[in-house]
Simulated assay, not measured.
Amino acid sequence: MTAADVQLMQGLTQRVTATSPDLVNSDATFGEPAWNWGKGHVGDGASWPRRLCFSGGDLVAWSWAHLPHRVRRSDGSVKDVTGACPAYQVHPDHAGLVDG
């Protein structure tokens, strides 16, 4: 995932917000993709699977999940993150991409 991908994700959020603001996922507001990507794209690696879905060249859905992983803190200690945290946004015209 690149900074350009994050901009596509933000564009999708803007389109969903403009047409169906009630469908904006709380983990997918305009700033969330940039914030999460900025703080985690290097360090989280394999514990952070991501997917972008396109239709006709337009991004219509994205998802990622922060999976359980181990974090090394700046003091050298290690913390196990045991929970998982999924986030996604889907354009309402492509709601079938989400397994309800």
Rank of each mutant, 00 (worst) to 15 (best):
L23F: 04
P49D: 08
A18R: 14
L67K: 08
S47Y: 02
S20D: 15
V81L: 06
T13K: 01
D93K: 10
V71G: 00
A18W: 02
V81Y: 15
T19M: 08
G11M: 03
R51A: 12
V24K: 06
S26I: 08
G45V: 03
S55V: 12
N36W: 14
G100K: 12
G83L: 07
D58C: 11
S47T: 07
R51F: 07
A87K: 00
R50V: 12
V98L: 11
P86D: 07
G11E: 10
L97R: 03
Q7Y: 09
P86K: 01
W64F: 06
T82D: 04
G96T: 10
M9P: 06
D27S: 13
A84E: 13
V90D: 00
T29N: 12
S26Q: 13
A3Q: 15
G38K: 02
P68G: 03
G57N: 11
W48D: 04
W62F: 10
Q7G: 12
S77N: 06
W62C: 01
V60C: 05
T29E: 14
P49M: 04
Q7P: 04
R50N: 12
V16A: 10
F54K: 06
Y88P: 01
A34S: 15
W37D: 06
P68R: 03
S26D: 14
G83E: 09
D27N: 14
W62A: 03
Y88M: 09
Y88R: 11
D58S: 13
G83N: 07
V42L: 14
G83W: 14
V16Y: 05
L23M: 11
A46W: 05
S63Y: 03
D75S: 09
L23Y: 05
S77D: 08
R15M: 02
S74P: 08
C85A: 09
A65Y: 04
V90C: 11
V98S: 12
P86F: 04
S26T: 13
V98I: 09
F30V: 13
H66W: 10
V6R: 07
M9E: 12
W48K: 11
F54Q: 03
H66E: 07
D75W: 05
G40C: 13
A95R: 08
V81S: 03
R70D: 09
A4G: 09
M9I: 06
C53I: 12
